[in-house]
Amino acid sequence: MPQAVVSARALSKSFPTKHVLHDISVEVEPGDIVGVLGKNGAGKTTLLELLLGFSIPTSGSAEIFGERSTDLSAAAKKRIAFVAQQDELIEIFTGAQHLALTAAFYDQWDHALVERLSREWEVPLTRRVQTLSVGERQKLSLLLALGAHPELLVLDEPVASLDPIARRQFITEIVDRARGAQSTVLFSSHIVSDLERAANKVWIVKDGRLAWAGDLDALKESVVRLHIHGRRALPRDLRVPDALTSRIDGTRATVAATHWTSERTAAVAAHLDADLEVESLALEDIFLELHR
């Protein structure tokens, strides 16, 4: 089994007035594209920055390429690129100057890739950052991260301000890069459709805890919506295992449940003396059900 690119064990983070993350344990393998989902303030940024060693965990530990995140060696750091939610661009610099500045830090800087992407994404390199739109700034930030040819690319809300064409181009690029375990990508986003298109694994952060960490396909198979048609009035407590939400209206009920299997369908139907219809959910619906 290949060494995990990122791993965290019982990671927790508290600030003086707030407990942000509780007991997070995750692993990311080479070639994974992990989408991190969560409501505003759920702890996504804190989680990503803890994993990268920007912050010190209150308890637990995080490792990247087998090294403790807070003490990463220079060699390990060279293999990582990060795009923060709020860009760190210098207002008076042009895009070209930013590229030159960032390239100075990396021996493996990929000039050809940067040239190609800046052309395809139409990044205005000759204008100063202060004159760029939010979307153009975001494209430049992504370009700076990709140019370093990272083995681990961590992106915190990287596409929020991009237009649909630019978002599609970006996703194609990271999927291509992850193919053949060339690169591992960890990205948070509110745009669930993008995440669904690109990610093979999903972490759902809810109130500082991981509500799900695993394969996207497994998540989709696991979380379902049950439409229950009872032969008589349904009880107030349906006792559906791992139910997330339920709405009961006489002989009919709708229940969202997780960890679902076909055996459970038969068991619940027998227990309630009802017909069960199992509906698969899109990621966005799963996210909503998990947060109701």
Partner: peptide, 8 residues
């Protein structure tokens, strides 16, 4: 912060 990863 912006040098933590880049600078090594």
């Amino acid at each position: 912060k912006s040098l933590w990863l880049k600078s090594g």
